[in-house]
């Protein structure tokens, strides 16, 4: 473990790759290492890229990262999440196809992850992968979410700035707006602006934003991009930087991060509790309680109380 910790401190990518795997596989050692290195986290700026499948998230990420590398020479980590098949547990992780030129850039690290049954647009270990990349010295970390539409809630709890990528002509645009995923956007990227319908979509988003209270401190900008032809990418990066500056100046970055950490702690507690509940011995007790409920000896509320008492009793 000492070796791994030293390697990570030195920025070793292979050690990082292995640690992410351990975290994904839920190995205790991973969390012990992260505990020891927790002081080395919190330096990277985390950017979430979300939006429907096929909207151009991977292509846009590729272009944004190239721009950062070229202009600022900062180190960038990318975490790209794709869905795991609920039937086989397998996954095809294909985001790297759009990022081929980045794989040989020394200052870039790309990791693909399957959701592994986790809902909410990220995998359970995404948060840990962010920490690992932070520890090895990445200045920016991009997270590309699954993009299944309405359940992309995790990203706001993980990223500092969230970019929602939309495209014209995905059928009923207004529907998407109603669906309530719009609130997660700090910035809108209207991608595939080389196609028709762009201005209409921009107008629809503006209309929706006009419904927000007037005195909200941040009004999400809308940036037109055409990722394939590298248009609007500079403007999008500028918008991200403006948002970053806004968060820092208003101290909202701190507030947001503390709130995210709170969510994170809750998650860990929930998991610990769940694993206590599902332990073998408790399983047997639960079975017995279920039988009692079946025979109407007790009701399910009382049974639940019994279980909670058992857990509390340790």
């Amino acid at each position: 473990m000492v070796d791994i910790i030293e390697s990570l401190k030195a920025g070793d990518k292979r050690a990082a790759a292995r640690l992410i795997t351990k975290a994904e596989n839920n190995e205790k050692e991973a969390f012990e290492i992260l505990k020891k290195l927790y002081d080395n986290t919190g330096n990277a700026y985390v950017i979430g890229i979300t939006g429907p499948p096929g909207s151009g998230k991977s292509t846009l990420t590729d272009k944004l990262v190239k721009e950062i590398r070229k202009k600022y020479n900062k180190k960038v980590g990318i975490i790209a999440v794709d869905p795991t098949s609920p039937f086989t547990g397998g996954a095809i992780l294909g985001d790297r196809i759009r990022m081929q030129d980045l794989s040989l850039d020394e200052g870039v690290f790309i990791r693909s992850m399957g959701t592994r049954g986790h809902l909410g647009g990220l995998s359970k270990a995404t948060n840990y992968a962010v920490k690992v990349l932070d520890i090895i010295g990445m200045d920016y970390i991009f997270i590309e979410t699954v993009g299944v539409g309405q359940s992309e809630v995790d990203i706001v709890k993980t990223a500092d700035t969230t970019v929602l990528v939309m495209v014209p002509g995905l059928g009923d645009d207004i529907q998407a707006i109603k669906a309530g995923i719009m609130e997660i956007a700090d910035i809108f990227a209207v991608n595939k602006a080389d196609r028709g319908g762009t201005d209409r979509l921009v107008a629809e988003i503006e209309m929706m934003l006009d419904l927000n209270p007037e005195n909200t401190p941040w009004k999400p900008p809308i940036v037109k991009t055409s990722a394939v032809s590298n248009k609007g990418v500079t403007e999008l990066l500028d918008a991200i930087k403006t948002h970053k500056k806004f968060l820092k100046e208003t101290d909202l970055l701190k507030t947001k991060r503390i709130s995210n950490i709170e969510t994170e702690i809750l998650k860990i507690v929930k998991e610990e509790l769940m694993s206590l509940i599902t332990q073998k011995e408790n399983h047997d007790k639960r079975k017995r309680l279920a039988v009692d409920v079946y025979h109407k000896k007790i009701d399910p509320f009382t049974a639940a109380d019994c279980l909670i008492k058992i857990i509390k009793g340790g």
């Binding site: 086989t88 397998g90 992780l93 693909s112």
Partner: peptide
């Protein structure tokens, strides 16, 4: 085939 066997496939193109 690998995916259907429960593996995670990183497809690079």
């Amino acid at each position: 085939a690998c995916r259907d066997a429960g593996m995670e496939v990183i497809y690079t193109g």
